[in-house]
């Protein structure tokens, strides 16, 4: 579904050149949930913005369902880390979710249905007429998720979406993502700096090196499909995977 081949990104300004991403090749299969994890400053956001078509790449290419990505593709949705800044403060929750659908020219009746369903799915059925700034951080990120879901994307990209919410909310949101992914079967690429989160959510975890970024490891998560905050996290295998990735990232840091 999503193929990234030899992706390279170099930032150039008149007096210096920074190689952010050296070369990345991986793919995400249809309906898969893949997590990307790496040390801070390893170009995770650069990678995600390149895949989303928000940033021109310096080399290699990104293909979505076979066709190369040159700008934001029509059937891709992104949930940004900065929930406070990705929602339009002058619109209600409903209007925020509805806006992309309007742009897609979805007929009004279907639009209303999609908005209601997606808000219901993230547990914000009664907050539709509130403005984003009247909601807590976790709820705002739910709105952004609802907006992405209502858009009916082929691929869902998430850029450290829970980095700025408290631990309890974070666990709830992780389970929300798993539930939505299972119900909708949408191909998901989830970028995070949190190893636990990556192992808990992903079917696969891609471990990145420090910048200039290459892939350290593409790891299959052989945990039971059914995840649960308590039981999954206390499985011995969970600990092993986590420890393994942690080592990799330590190595990446030291190699720098």
């Amino acid at each position: 579904m999503l193929e990234i081949s030899e992706l390279r990104k170099v930032y150039e300004s008149p007096n210096r050149v920074v190689e952010a991403i050296r070369s990345l090749t991986f793919s995400v299969g249809e309906g898969e949930l893949v997590c990307v994890v790496g040390p801070s400053g390893c170009g995770k956001t650069t990678l995600l913005r390149s895949i989303a078509g928000l940033l021109p790449v310096s080399g290699g290419e990104v293909r979505l369902a076979g066709s190369p990505v040159t700008g934001p593709p029509p059937r891709m949705a992104v949930v940004f880390q900065e929930y406070g800044r990705s929602l339009f403060p002058w619109m209600t929750v409903r209007q925020n979710v509805e806006l992309p659908l309007k742009e897609k020219r979805v007929p009004p009746s279907r639009r209303a249905e999609l908005v209601a369903d997606s808000l219901e799915a993230v547990g914000l059925g009664d907050a539709a007429d509130a403005h984003p700034w009247q909601l807590s951080g976790g709820m705002q990120q739910r709105v952004a998720i609802a907006r992405a879901v209502a858009y009916e994307p082929q691929v869902l990209l998430m850029d450290e979406p829970f980095a700025a919410v408290d631990a309890q909310t974070r666990a709830d949101l992780e389970d929300l993502i798993l539930r939505l992914w299972r119900d909708l079967g949408v191909t998901t690429l989830f970028v995070t700096h949190d190893i636990d989160e990556a192992v808990y959510l992903g079917q696969r975890v891609i471990v990145l090196s420090s910048s200039p970024t290459v892939i350290m490891e593409d790891l299959k998560v052989d945990l039971p499909a059914e995840r649960d905050q308590l039981t999954t996290r206390s499985l011995p295998r969970f600990g092993e995977l986590r420890g393994h990735i942690y080592e990799q990232i330590q190595r990446a840091r030291e190699a720098r």
């Binding site: 913005r49 989303a52 928000l54 700008g71 934001p72 029509p74 891709m76 949705a77 992104v78 940004f80 900065e82 800044r85 990705s86 339009f88 002058w90 619109m91 806006l99 992309p100 309007k102 742009e103 897609k104 907006r147 858009y151």
Partner: peptide
């Protein structure tokens, strides 16, 4: 104007007059 909102507009295909009305002017 907020860059994250600008990215959001690009991602969700909000452009042209709609972008002007719903994002830039607001």
């Amino acid at each position: 104007l907020d860059e994250v909102l600008a990215d959001t507009c690009r991602m969700y295909g909000v452009r042209g007059g709609s972008r002007l009305r719903r994002f830039v002017l607001r």
